[in-house]
Simulated scan of single mutants.
Amino acid sequence: MTPSVSPGEEWPGYYRGYRLRTNPDGDVWWQVYQGTDRLHLDPSPDDLVEQLLSLKRLGGRVRVTEDNDVITREETDDGYRTVYVGNLSVEGELVPRDAPEFSVDVNPTGLNPGDLWPSVYDGAKFSFSGGGEHIWWSNPATNRRHPVETPIPNSVLTALQTHKPKGGSFRITPWNDVITLVSAHPAPDTIQEQFSDLPRVVKNIIKLRKERGVEMLPVYVGKIHDTPIQIGEPKTLIDELSDEEREELEGWAASLGTNSPTREEDHSADSITQSESDDTEPIEEELPDDDPEDWYTG
């Protein structure tokens, strides 16, 4: 939670989280695509809805972070700003209208890492590189990568790397569950059995996404314990180098053109030769498009 921020004040953090929508009638729902069935949250968080409608009389979209903070975007003369709405412990069921027998648990329990996720796939989105050395939040407005500074449990990182050795994205729910999307699983027989037991609503969501070219299954990875997830500022070309970075860079520059590996202790090498390639384009690490944002309503 962020007790230093009052409802209606500008949110000091970044914009992410589990997506819900509201209207002036006080309904709260989740929706996979614009125009598809609404899954209504039951019980409805009436106090929070009242607070939101005092800020946005027509309701609208909100996000629930991994620390249960509810935030929304408010239109201003210059564009938009993110404001704090309140705190919400999301619980209960997501209920299709007039079909409560097909309700889905909001917060599934009793899962083991690698199990199929038997609820809607949503939460704060983060990404990681192959090998797991780097974890970041991608700013949708700038496409800049902000490094995650909060430690992620080794068990979670190991599981993510097992499922996605080339890197990719994952989600953190308001209950601190970590989930991801996979195109292959090391235990296909188990997955086939679990898929048969998935709620009808979840199967139809997977079917909708498959029809749009996203042929992946949601999998439970594990839990995090330290929240909120803190991020830092991305590196820029005007950052000052540290003494260690400067020394390493100068040693590397002095050894350019050698045909022997640079020695770590003195950053030197044995002899000089022509570089094999002197005109290569720098390529930023590319990740699989494993979680397209247009799955969602915004």
Score class of each variant (00 low, 15 high):
289 D>S: 14
198 L>P: 05
189 D>F: 09
16 R>C: 03
31 Q>I: 03
269 A>Y: 10
223 K>Q: 05
295 W>S: 04
179 I>K: 07
24 P>Y: 08
235 K>W: 07
162 T>M: 15
74 E>D: 13
202 V>S: 06
61 R>E: 15
213 G>M: 11
86 G>V: 01
161 Q>T: 15
156 V>R: 01
24 P>H: 09
85 V>Q: 02
160 L>G: 05
69 D>Q: 13
90 V>S: 02
284 E>P: 06
181 L>T: 12
45 P>Q: 09
80 Y>Q: 09
164 K>R: 14
66 E>G: 06
144 R>Y: 13
11 W>P: 00
184 A>F: 01
31 Q>F: 03
184 A>G: 11
87 N>Q: 12
38 R>N: 04
245 E>A: 12
129 S>V: 08
277 S>V: 12
222 G>I: 09
152 I>F: 06
167 G>E: 03
118 P>F: 00
84 Y>C: 03
20 L>S: 05
18 Y>A: 01
185 H>L: 09
230 Q>D: 08
107 N>I: 11
218 P>C: 07
292 P>A: 00
112 N>D: 11
5 V>R: 07
216 M>K: 14
183 S>I: 02
25 D>P: 02
220 Y>I: 03
191 I>W: 10
237 L>E: 12
268 S>K: 10
260 S>C: 08
94 L>W: 10
260 S>R: 12
208 L>C: 01
265 E>A: 02
75 E>K: 07
166 K>V: 12
170 F>L: 13
179 I>C: 03
251 G>N: 03
52 L>Y: 06
54 S>W: 07
131 G>M: 08
288 P>C: 05
125 K>I: 11
258 T>C: 13
208 L>K: 10
104 V>S: 06
77 D>N: 03
148 V>P: 06
4 S>F: 12
146 H>L: 03
113 P>W: 06
136 W>G: 08
108 P>V: 06
183 S>R: 12
268 S>Y: 00
15 Y>R: 07
39 L>G: 06
186 P>H: 13
223 K>E: 13
243 D>V: 13
261 P>L: 07
82 T>P: 03
277 S>M: 13
20 L>W: 12
262 T>C: 05
241 L>F: 14
162 T>A: 14
173 T>C: 06
66 E>N: 07
103 S>T: 15
252 W>A: 02
92 G>T: 13
59 G>D: 01
75 E>D: 06
248 E>A: 11
271 S>L: 11
132 G>N: 04
264 E>L: 05
39 L>P: 07
215 E>T: 08
78 D>V: 04
165 P>K: 01
45 P>R: 04
110 G>D: 13
147 P>I: 09
250 E>R: 14
76 T>L: 06
213 G>W: 15
57 R>F: 11
256 L>T: 02
191 I>Y: 04
23 N>H: 05
273 T>R: 12
81 R>H: 11
120 V>T: 11
170 F>M: 07
92 G>R: 15
135 I>N: 00
46 D>A: 10
237 L>V: 13
99 A>F: 04
277 S>L: 14
119 S>I: 00
200 R>I: 15
71 I>H: 07
42 D>C: 12
